[in-house]
Design a binder for these strands. Sequence first.
RNA 1: CGGGGUGUGGCGCAGUUGGCUAGCGCGCCGCGUUUGGGACGCGGAGGUCGGAGGUUCAAGUCCUCUCACCCCGACCA
Length: 417
Amino acid sequence: MKYSQLFTKTSKTVPSDETARNAQLLIQAGFVHKEMAGVYAYLPLGLKVLEHIKNIVREEMNAVNGQELIMTNLQRPDVWQTTTRWDDEIVDIWFKTKLKDDTEIGLAWSHEEPILNMMQQFVQSYKDLPVSVYQFQTKLRNELRAKSGIMRGREFLMKDMYSLHASAEDLDNYYNQVKDAYTRVFERVGIGSDTFLTFASGGAFTKFSHEFQTICAAGEDILYIHRGKNIAVNEEVLDDAVQELGVDKSELEKVVSAEVGNIFNFGTDKSAQMGIYFTNAEGHQSPLYLGSYGIGITRIMGVIAEKYSDDKGLVWPESIAPARVYLARLGDTDEIVQAADQLYAELTAANIGVLYDDRDVRPGEKFADADLLGIPMRVVISEKTISSNNYECKRRRESEVSFLNHQQLIETLSVMS
RNA sequence: CGGGGUGUGGCGCAGUUGGCUAGCGCGCCGCGUUUGGGACGCGGAGGUCGGAGGUUCAAGUCCUCUCACCCCGACCA
């Protein structure tokens, strides 16, 4: 991507109507646009980050045999009525509207019921099991109050997956596979060391569920963690959980965190409630065992923006950065332009994401933008680097520059994941 | 939903006790000088002050209603 062709601009000032650091930075750097409270548009650079996160999640979901699909955002009331969740008293975040003929419909805040209802059409026998489906979908939730920038909006992107099984053992086994897949996801997007598998409230169906919580000051949850034993407990179930885990409350560290993922083992409760059965090997009707697994895609982006930034701007992990390289061309002599164009073409051909700052602006502005945008590696091509026949490289996380020749540069960029 | 706060060019802000053609910085356009950490000079364009109603000779400044945004709380699979 050439910067000169990018329509977004960075700003020297932060928006006055945001206090959440993630939103301030993302807007200042031109990654997102705020449409209204809790509703954000994702601009080219922000979309790149989102796509990179999605691709990591997609790879891991595919690795546990998840099949990707896309459900609808307009939903039928009757599907939700079977579980009582159409009721505004039960679910208070519904957006509801009507068709021209007055038929009432809901806007998707979740897809659990519709997706199970649909799966019923295809899954009738134990021979059809197990099966696991997932999607990346926009969720619409009429929250009383939006806050924390993109971390808690009224419209957000989520990956949700549902697995159907013939037995509790099979579900348990799969549940653990997904747990591991989730752990890999959070490692790969760069928040592994601060993300904990957490005991949390299981809602109506199970005593505990597992949440993936990332330490983040802008989060909404309180966690009690033990780094050594790798234990984390949500405050809401603290007393029950410590008892069950056999640890003492006093050895736990209290931290503020944001929920980035959640996995549920529903057993057969949900499908029994919805009346969804399969025919088992004995020829009898049997309720499905069901698992549900969510990851907040836009929330991960917000958490990372929030956690990894400094006074100069964003600092993206390499795996999800909008580009791996910020190529700053200083000067516009033929030699310089040619060298920069050439490196840009070469890296692009090698599938290494580059934001090529080919603008006719002063060096200071390019450096400031490179920092603000948080691209992991800055490569400068200037008169100096041409005469010394190397590239000036600086990692976003570090302050020292290093000089690499062509081969060293390519090698360095290749090992960056 | 309760409490508090804020709405003035694209962005960030200032506008005294109401008073004449509504300012400043950034950004934007033109010309010139610059070119390794967001340059400088000169010349420009752009707002009717969130919206509606009212008080007044006169309203960005006062009153009423309304909309939006932010924060705290409540809420939050």
